[in-house]
Computed example of a mutant assay.
Amino acid sequence: MKRTAVMRLLRREAHARGLVYSQRELARHTAVTVGPVTRTLGRHREVDDVTAGKFFDQFSDVLGGKEWWR
């Protein structure tokens, strides 16, 4: 999955739920904040599906439960 697609999906879901979404670039990662939760994602063009799923799972508490992206 493309990194831009991961960010786009997360941003759209956050806005749909009325949560604040922000991202900032760190040295080798991007910090993504959705509501009160902040996590990092490596800066690669492609993110494999397992990594994307685990990244999305980290936001499951604020975005409506496990596997909200499916």
Results as ranks from 00 to 15, higher is better:
residue 1 M to N: 14
residue 1 M to G: 11
residue 1 M to H: 14
residue 1 M to C: 04
residue 1 M to R: 13
residue 2 K to E: 15
residue 2 K to A: 15
residue 3 R to V: 00
residue 3 R to S: 09
residue 3 R to W: 08
residue 4 T to E: 14
residue 5 A to W: 14
residue 5 A to M: 11
residue 5 A to S: 13
residue 6 V to L: 09
residue 7 M to L: 15
residue 7 M to K: 11
residue 7 M to A: 07
residue 8 R to S: 11
residue 8 R to Y: 05
residue 8 R to C: 02
residue 9 L to M: 12
residue 9 L to Y: 12
residue 9 L to A: 12
residue 10 L to E: 08
residue 10 L to P: 06
residue 10 L to R: 01
residue 13 E to A: 01
residue 15 H to W: 04
residue 15 H to T: 04
residue 15 H to N: 07
residue 16 A to P: 09
residue 16 A to K: 14
residue 16 A to V: 01
residue 17 R to M: 07
residue 17 R to G: 02
residue 17 R to N: 13
residue 18 G to W: 08
residue 19 L to N: 07
residue 19 L to F: 08
residue 19 L to H: 13
residue 19 L to I: 07
residue 20 V to I: 13
residue 20 V to K: 09
residue 20 V to D: 15
residue 20 V to T: 15
residue 20 V to C: 09
residue 21 Y to G: 00
residue 21 Y to A: 06
residue 22 S to N: 06
residue 23 Q to E: 14
residue 23 Q to V: 00
residue 23 Q to G: 10
residue 23 Q to L: 06
residue 24 R to S: 11
residue 24 R to Q: 13
residue 24 R to G: 07
residue 24 R to W: 10
residue 24 R to T: 04
residue 25 E to A: 05
residue 25 E to G: 07
residue 26 L to S: 10
residue 28 R to T: 15
residue 28 R to N: 15
residue 29 H to P: 01
residue 29 H to E: 15
residue 29 H to I: 04
residue 29 H to C: 11
residue 30 T to L: 11
residue 30 T to F: 06
residue 30 T to E: 04
residue 31 A to R: 08
residue 32 V to S: 07
residue 32 V to D: 08
residue 33 T to D: 02
residue 33 T to G: 02
residue 33 T to P: 01
residue 34 V to S: 01
residue 35 G to K: 01
residue 37 V to A: 05
residue 37 V to G: 00
residue 38 T to R: 03
residue 38 T to D: 02
residue 39 R to P: 12
residue 39 R to A: 06
residue 39 R to S: 00
residue 39 R to L: 11
residue 40 T to V: 06
residue 41 L to F: 05
residue 41 L to R: 04
residue 42 G to N: 10
residue 43 R to M: 00
residue 43 R to P: 03
residue 44 H to Y: 12
residue 44 H to S: 07
residue 45 R to G: 12
residue 46 E to R: 05
residue 47 V to K: 09
residue 48 D to N: 07
residue 51 T to C: 03
residue 51 T to P: 04
residue 51 T to S: 13
residue 51 T to W: 10
residue 52 A to E: 05
residue 53 G to Q: 08
residue 53 G to H: 00
residue 54 K to D: 12
residue 54 K to G: 14
residue 55 F to Y: 15
residue 55 F to S: 08
residue 56 F to Q: 06
residue 57 D to Y: 02
residue 57 D to F: 03
residue 57 D to E: 15
residue 57 D to G: 05
residue 58 Q to Y: 03
residue 58 Q to C: 13
residue 58 Q to S: 15
residue 60 S to Y: 07
residue 62 V to E: 02
residue 63 L to S: 00
residue 63 L to I: 01
residue 63 L to G: 05
residue 64 G to H: 09
residue 65 G to D: 06
residue 65 G to I: 14
residue 66 K to T: 14
residue 66 K to A: 13
residue 67 E to I: 11
residue 69 W to E: 04
residue 69 W to Q: 06
residue 70 R to Q: 14
